[in-house]
């Protein structure tokens, strides 16, 4: 993709100018769910009382372990399944009632790509474009060609889709979401099956789309991916939304970790415990030549011990300190502290 890493991307052909001051409060929400609930049969609800607000222009990361209700939520937002209760608004219109008016402005990749294997990549897109009643037939080929180029598939457009690799299918799915200039892109695991280079390209594409003013709603299980591209994030667990906000605010909520690299782990743990450091643990390096690390909760601003003091204590006790520092909390730490479980555990 040519335009991948262009950070503040030039405005696309007819990108609408900023219209005055941004509208206030909830009017700006591109996605607004209130008490959204889906219950299959009599079991526990798949999605339970979800209140979700995606601000216009944001790149919104949607996180959660497998089975936490992310896909069910996305399907309800897109009008594919009917909520048991609660409401969902997309671009200010109720769903699924306004599907016909809203969905032409929404591009979506839901639970991976699905293609007609016996059609070529280009024919797949032509069919999806034909399914959109607002798409002018005269410019169909042009639109499809542009979308194929955008995801780097132009050279393989004439191949049958069943011969595509998973990464190519994923790209074709993305191309379908980009057939029209969209106001909202819903991307469920967009980098699934892509090689690292492809992932970078997709991230670049997401950034350039966002720079053009498209709101991107991105679900992913790759936390560093969310951290790299998203401005906002929400975390789901067991069908409930447990946190949402800007990525910066979410990360700030979690404490950093103190890490001490030292061969004298037993002594270091003893000293740090004496100094009141909680959550201590020892990480043994995989290679024999490496240095073990002692980690614990970094002392917060309100606590009495200071970092420099801790280090001095360690040295005074004869601990050979090879590295000392506080590691910033990652989104993963936030996630683990919020859900109380490893990320890959099925909820």
């Amino acid at each position: 993709m040519a335009e991948s890493d262009r950070a503040p991307g030039p405005p696309r052909n007819a990108s609408p100018p900023e219209r005055g001051a941004p509208a206030s409060g909830s009017a700006e929400a591109v996605v607004a769910a209130r008490g959204l609930t889906k219950r299959y049969g009599r079991g526990a609800p798949a999605v339970d009382g979800l209140d979700l607000t995606v601000p216009a222009g944001s790149v919104f990361g949607f996180l959660g372990p497998n089975g936490s209700g992310k896909t069910t939520t996305i399907r309800m937002l897109l009008g594919l399944i009917e909520p048991t209760s609660g409401t969902a608004h997309l671009l200010g219109r109720p769903m699924p009632g306004s599907s016909r008016e809203v969905l032409p402005h929404v591009g979506a990749l839901i639970e991976g790509p699905a293609l007609y294997g016996y059609l070529t990549g280009r024919e797949n897109l032509l069919r999806l474009d034909a399914a959109d009643p607002t798409a002018a037939p005269r410019t169909r080929r042009e639109r499809v060609g542009t979308a194929l180029e955008r995801v780097g598939l132009a050279a393989a457009a004439g191949k049958k889709a069943k011969a595509y690799s998973l990464g190519m299918k994923q790209r074709l799915g993305l191309a379908a979401a980009l057939l029209q200039p969209r106001r909202l892109l819903v991307l469920d695991e967009p980098t699934n099956g892509l090689d690292p280079q492809g992932m970078r390209e997709i991230r670049g594409l997401v950034r350039s789309l966002a720079a053009d003013g498209t709101t991107v709603f991105l679900s992913s299980h790759l936390l560093d991916e969310i951290e790299q591209v998203c401005s906002h994030a929400a975390v789901m667990s067991g069908g409930r939304l447990i946190s949402q906000g800007t990525v910066a605010a979410l990360s700030a909520g979690a404490r950093g970790r103190l890490a001490v690299a030292t061969p004298d782990t037993v002594e270091a743990v003893r000293v740090l415990k004496e100094q009141g450091v909680r959550g201590l643990g020892v990480e043994v390096p995989e290679e024999p030549a490496g240095t073990p690390r002692v980690t614990g909760e970094a002392p917060g601003a309100e606590e009495t011990v200071e970092l420099a003091e801790l280090n001095a204590e360690l040295v005074r006790a004869g601990v050979r300190v090879r590295g000392f520092g506080v590691e910033r909390a990652s989104l993963e730490d936030v996630f683990v502290s919020l859900t109380g479980e490893g990320f890959d555990v099925t909820g």
């Binding site: 609408p16 900023e18 219209r19 941004p22 509208a23 009017a27 700006e28 929400a29 591109v30 216009a56 222009g57 671009l91 200010g92 219109r93 306004s98 008016e101 809203v102 032409p104 402005h105 106001r183 003013g213 498209t214 709101t215």
Partner: peptide, 9 residues
């Protein structure tokens, strides 16, 4: 980005 009011015609 276009405000929601101008949204889907």
């Amino acid at each position: 980005m276009s405000p929601v009011e101008t949204a889907p015609q």
